[in-house]
Write a protein that binds this DNA or RNA. Structure first.
Lengths: 161, 161
DNA sequence: ACAATTGACCAAAGAATATTCGGTATTGGC
DNA sequence: GCCAATACCGAATATTCTTTGGTCAATTGT
């Protein structure tokens, strides 16, 4: 199995990234392959882990009463064990939709979705306060979704395409 | 056209959110509808704007040299015009994949993807420094993608389902 | 150099799916 | 009661998926 992605692979990824429900026939046309060859490539990209999954972007703000907020978290202690414990807790919470570990000033950035003010308070007092590992946090309600798009692979790897 | 989402709509959204490429036949089975009825529902949900689009989640960290980072931004001034200008700039940058406006302490949180150290520095010095509206910012390199999942609509609206 | 192997590709075909269409039942006004 | 609107189903056609077998070119081992 080859190690790198060629131009066509990047092309396939680039299309699927933005139009996950495109038919294989159309995708094949776009990248200049026969449907069968294209299908093989997609399956391989999936198998090799370049495509994690396909998801529908739901307009959560249209659902009544949802509150979206970001939380910056600093842990008390920074041993490997502390990180693991915190991250397992995060995985369990259905309200945390995203969590990245970051460098510089604090440790994690979370994105959280709840279904109302009550759930919002419950999350902060319940989940965060009860978690013994957290030194401090700051919660920031999302007031507007300014932008949410995929990386343009053609821009990102302009030199390789 | 009805205003609310019924139990089945939430069900459909819940499935499509996580498995955007599921076949309509299988989706119909899961939500207990005929394929035709299910198809109509999906099309309506799309037309009503509850489903924004379908996207493939690409494992960017597997692509060679990509750097992912978050930026917290505070604007100098806070008139409506300042926000608009900043947001238009954001829309133009292919490297900014996400931007939310937030309350509490600072104004925006950005998520940025670049293809190497050089592009990273270029972004900070170029895009951010040159933008006259920014008072201060802090950049935080993402060291680990701890979690990235969709909201569980069944949990979020447990009472309504 | 030269098989043998491998991988990517294509065309074709059968299986499965999407999408359209007509028709029925239920609902909510009027 | 009656009409219109809506949600649904089953069936039919158009399109697609997925498999299969075979060609070709590049790669590998000898």
């Amino acid at each position: 199995m080859q190690k790198e992605l060629d131009k066509r692979d990047l092309n396939v990824l680039s299309v699927l990234q933005n139009e996950a429900r495109i038919s294989n026939v159309q995708l094949a046309e776009r990248v200049g392959l026969s449907p069968a060859a294209c299908w093989e490539r997609v399956k391989k990209l999936e198998a090799r882990g370049y495509i994690r999954r396909y998801l529908g972007e739901i307009a959560l703000e249209k659902l009544p009463g949802t509150i979206n907020f970001m939380v910056l978290v600093t842990l008390k202690t920074h041993r490997a064990d502390d990180f693991i414990k915190f991250e397992t807790d995060i995985q369990k919470s259905a309200h945390v939709v995203r969590c990245v570990a970051v460098g510089g000033g604090f440790d994690y950035i979370l994105e959280v979705v709840v279904a109302g003010m009550e759930a919002y308070k419950d999350f902060l007092s319940g989940f965060l306060e009860r978690n013994g590992h957290i030194e401090k946090y700051s919660a920031h309600v999302v007031t507007k979704n300014v932008k949410s798009q995929s990386v343009d692979l053609n821009v990102l790897f302009a030199d390789q395409i």
